[in-house]
Design a protein around this nucleic acid. Structure first.
Lengths: 146, 146
DNA sequence: TTTAGATGTAACCATTGACATTACAACGCC
DNA sequence: GGCGTTGTAATGTCAATGGTTACATCTAAA
């Protein structure tokens, strides 16, 4: 199993919105062109990012803007916004261990907090990565290419 | 997306094998009873654990044994053994960003090593959890219940 | 040497989530 | 009012998961 490409696509989108905000109106079609997916996929993600308070999308006239300071948008925020980890639990636990069996009865208790720690290690790392970092790096790469 | 229950099932199986090794022959049917899944599911996982050198399974006569020291079986080993993360990459990257677009051209470079760091944070935590820990805890819980 | 009890594995199915795509209603500036 | 957008429902395809049946194969023990 892999974490959905929704995450990398959403990051790509935000990087685009920020990079081109002064040059064009950034529509779902424009973003779809850069990411190379169907515009509907973009609009769905844009909806989710909007619901999370990360972007604003202009109906009618069109165009998306980032409405939260870049250094306050972490990769974890985006991950949550686009719902990458179902029901917030990274690990899928088998549902019905046999409670008649001493091991089956206790396995949940033993594992739950270990799995939680693993997930938290991952989330802590994601919290440290912000869109500010990502965009600074992206812009610097672009500058060196022109 | 969630990491397959193969991981938690495999851990449950190993805990059972260790806990009951002196009392019964631990067959796939017995394990299936504790985990509460079809025996074929158990046999499939047993095959993978065997291929990873973690258990030995007796054909004909039946029964599984753990053949690696418990403190040398980490959760990460099990995760790899049962193939929880496709092609070893935790994050699914969208395949074809548009290379004509300055952002599309660079997004991979910018993201790849960040995603790697996140994955490594997760794996490091998994490396710290061994079957020795898990089984000690399980046995202690069982003891307090009898 | 047969047999009983296991394992190994192929084959098939149902369900689920991802992602793509079409279609169209609603919106808001010009 | 019309044009370019967004929002979203509906539908389709594909892959992975997990369940199940079926059966060939193996080995110890009767």
């Amino acid at each position: 199993m892999q974490i959905s490409s929704r995450l990398t696509i959403a990051i790509h989108m935000l990087a685009c919105i920020e990079t081109f905000k002064d040059e064009h109106k950034v529509t779902s079609d424009f973003l779809a062109g850069s990411v190379n997916v169907n515009p509907v996929v973009i609009r769905r993600l844009l909806s989710q990012l909007k619901a999370a308070g990360i972007v604003a999308v202009a109906r009618g006239t069109g165009g998306a803007k980032i409405i939260r300071p870049l250094n306050e948008i972490t990769m974890l925020d985006i991950c949550h916004a686009v719902d990458c980890v179902e029901s917030g639990k990274l690990f899928h636990f088998h549902e019905n261990p046999n409670r008649q069996c001493p091991v089956g009865r206790n396995i949940h208790t033993v594992l739950d907090d270990k799995l939680d720690k693993v997930q938290q290690a991952m989330e802590n790392e994601m919290r440290r990565i912000t869109m500010a970092d990502l965009i600074t790096e992206t812009k610097s790469l672009i500058r060196n290419q022109t």
